[in-house]
Simulated scan of single mutants.
Amino acid sequence: MEPDDVDFAHTDLADRMRRDKAVGLARYVWDRAVTGAELLDLPDDRLRKLARAAGVNPPSTGETWKVVAALLDEKSRWASAHPDHPQATPGHADEKIMWVKPPLPPWPTN
Rank of each mutant, 00 (worst) to 15 (best):
M1A: 09
E2N: 11
E2Y: 04
P3D: 13
D5V: 04
D5H: 09
V6W: 06
D7S: 03
F8H: 12
H10K: 14
H10W: 14
H10Y: 10
T11V: 09
T11I: 06
D12V: 08
L13A: 13
L13I: 10
L13N: 14
A14G: 14
A14S: 15
A14D: 05
D15H: 11
D15E: 08
R16F: 04
R16P: 00
R16Y: 13
M17E: 13
M17F: 14
R18L: 08
R18N: 13
R19T: 13
D20H: 04
D20V: 00
K21H: 02
K21M: 05
A22K: 12
A22I: 15
A22T: 12
V23R: 11
L25N: 03
A26E: 03
V29L: 06
V29A: 12
V29F: 05
D31E: 10
R32H: 09
R32A: 06
A33F: 06
V34R: 01
A37G: 10
A37W: 07
E38H: 08
L40W: 01
D41T: 03
L42G: 04
L42H: 05
L42P: 00
P43A: 13
D45W: 04
R46V: 04
R46G: 00
L47Y: 05
R48E: 12
R48C: 07
R48M: 11
K49C: 06
A51Q: 04
A51G: 02
A51V: 03
R52K: 07
R52A: 12
R52N: 09
A54S: 05
A54W: 02
V56M: 07
S60E: 15
G62H: 02
E63Q: 11
E63G: 15
T64L: 12
K66A: 14
K66I: 06
A70N: 10
D73Y: 01
E74G: 05
K75C: 01
S76W: 14
R77A: 02
A81N: 00
P83L: 12
P83N: 03
H85N: 11
H85I: 09
H85V: 05
P86Q: 06
P86F: 03
A88G: 03
A88V: 01
T89C: 03
P90L: 06
G91P: 02
A93Y: 01
A93W: 04
D94S: 08
E95T: 06
E95Y: 14
M98N: 13
M98A: 15
M98G: 09
W99S: 07
K101W: 06
P102F: 12
P103Q: 08
P103I: 09
L104D: 11
L104A: 14
W107L: 13
P108V: 01
T109E: 12
